[in-house]
Nucleic acid binder design. Sequence first.
DNA 1: AGATTTACTATTTTT
DNA 2: TAGTAAATCT
Length: 720
Amino acid sequence: MSEFVLSASRSLNKRIDYAKELNQEQLDVVLHGDGPCLVLAGAGSGKTRTLTYRVAYLLEQGVDPSSILLLTFTNKAAREMLSRVQGLIGSEAVGLWGGTFHSIGSRILRSFAERLGYSSSFSIMDSEDAGDLVKAIIKELAIDTKARRFPSASVVQDVISYARNVQEPIPETLGRKYPHFQEAGVQIEEIARIYQGRKKSGNMLDFDDLLSLLVLLLEDPTLGRSIAERFRYVLVDEYQDTNAIQARIVKGFSHVHGNVLVVGDDAQSIYAFRGADVKNILSFPKLWPNASTFKLLTNYRSTPQILEVANASLKHNEEQFQKDLLAMGSQGEKPRLVPCQSASQEARYVADQIAALRNNGKPLREMAVLFRSSAHSQTLEFELMKRDLPYEYRGGQKFFERAHIKDAVCFLRIRQNCKDEVAWSRVLQLQPGIGVTSAANFARHVGHCQSWNDATETEAAQAWKGKAKEGWRVFVELMNDLGGPEEWPSTVLRRVAASSYKRYLEQEYPNWRDRLEDLEQLALFAESYQETATFLADIALYDDVVAARQEAGDTERERLVLSTIHQAKGLEWDAVFIIHLADQSFPSRRALSENGGMEEERRLFYVAVTRARRDLFLTYPMTLGYDTLQFQPPSTFLEELPPQLFERLELRDPGLGRGFAPKKRLWSFGDEGDSWEEPFLEQDNLGERAAKTTVWKNDPKKPSLPPPTSFLRPIGTDKS
DNA sequence: AGATTTACTATTTTT
DNA sequence: TAGTAAATCT
């Protein structure tokens, strides 16, 4: 153990005895993390803890808080990290700069946008907006993606990711991938260029632009230098999830003082689909030749039994640093592997176990249920609601992604930046008689307008006909009722909520009251802003106002967490259930078609497993489907593991027969009337992976019932 | 008639 | 949510 025991200083809230609270590996980083440092850390090794203590240590050394920059990848992680630092060092943390790459970018950019040739009234597009714009462009070019059997979603993806590196040489593969675009006389690169151009003429920035501009700024000899001078220490968490541009940003922030410390785990890289590249963390030593490397390989989170599963799974990945995690936790039980007859039996089993754990004194907030895709939780949610087990749903839709919130924000965006064609198009489509085509046709001409009045007087504005003309009139009236540009955003939002948009909500959505309530929440949040521009820039990168407000108030509330694995990253619970580990669902079909998809999915599985401290349950339904019952083998990730790592449970459910009728089970309350006679399942097929996929058809004479989705979702997360 | 809107079905992950 | 089929509009 190190000799270092630092005494408390006036700047710290809490007396810290570093040697006592950290292990040797962590202590090394905290004390010797000067200069460029790469910390390769396994799951549960206390990465964030180490970062937090390093900040505390720096402050004790008298470093000015405002010269420390803490960066991470996701909003949640950023908030979590800051609050931990704050808990440790109290009010001193106020001076710290912390957040995601994007939010830091937008904060700095707002003051520099004009110098970089952007008008300060720029709009920020989210990925949905970006997709809409690309689709509109493809439509204008009259490329028939349907006739050419090409999913436009994938084209849009590729265009945007190509646009991300538009200054780089054109990757050959892209041209070869889309020969039919060439047939139509259009190169995919051209679409990307048009996309770039349209963003510029519309005075709009997408998330990538925010980053690219930040790079330009940071690499500027004078401006960049003055920013980098300010940050004496730069610390980055989750570095494995960064992309090339973000690496340049990190370099840009830290090139003057060179005190850059990045922490990451290549085994937890799960964001390749949005441009993250593991190579980034591996090449850090090349970027900083004098970098020192630390390793944190002791796992303090999980029991050895859980870690064994994690390690065994990772062995199947070829592109991997060899790195076995060392378990320091106390012994526990083997993870339980539970095949279920159906999704509903799975839900009942999980709910039973949760209730049992709670009866044994485990608080609900120490449990979580994780799944690959948000839809996998539906059956369970229904079961939890039935039993009155309170839960919090993460993943799925964010506050600012809800349709009505985006609508309201788009009204503001038009007022702020009349060239914002994406906002125009969205808002116009709210009117009856105006659909995608005519909205896009109008919005295309808005780029030349200098003001809102210009837009209402263009030729296009005179050309509306019939039903659409009435829609246009209503829209103009609405916009005029919102008041002049001097109005505060909160006022405008409340006017939107009282306008004809309210009528639209009422007739369109049964839960319009909730939606109006959401709008009020938004207005409430907006009250602290006088300027619309500032408000818009802030919320573009914020994920959930309501959650943030609630968190402040009641952290103690007893809730179980349901979450996608992606959103669970960096978090941990005593008991974790990973559900729906079925073939075709977990290594998801679409991910497999991508390069390296299998390995990325396996890393995702690894992330899920390592969230658990003591109890881990792995479950899967052996049958899937609504109107046909399809026999479903378990996930490859389960089958490839040695069986002795688990304790296998056979469920003997008295209601087995009914378990076979998920259609019935899912949404008839209590009425057990006409259950199906089902063939009995002799054995499940783990191990002898079914060459045979058996399908049972339901009796066609049975009445067909409406699909369950409409009322299975809890209030607030319904489709929009 | 042709274009465009609306209704309907099955669904990957997100700064 | 995106792709398709039916309904409606110009």
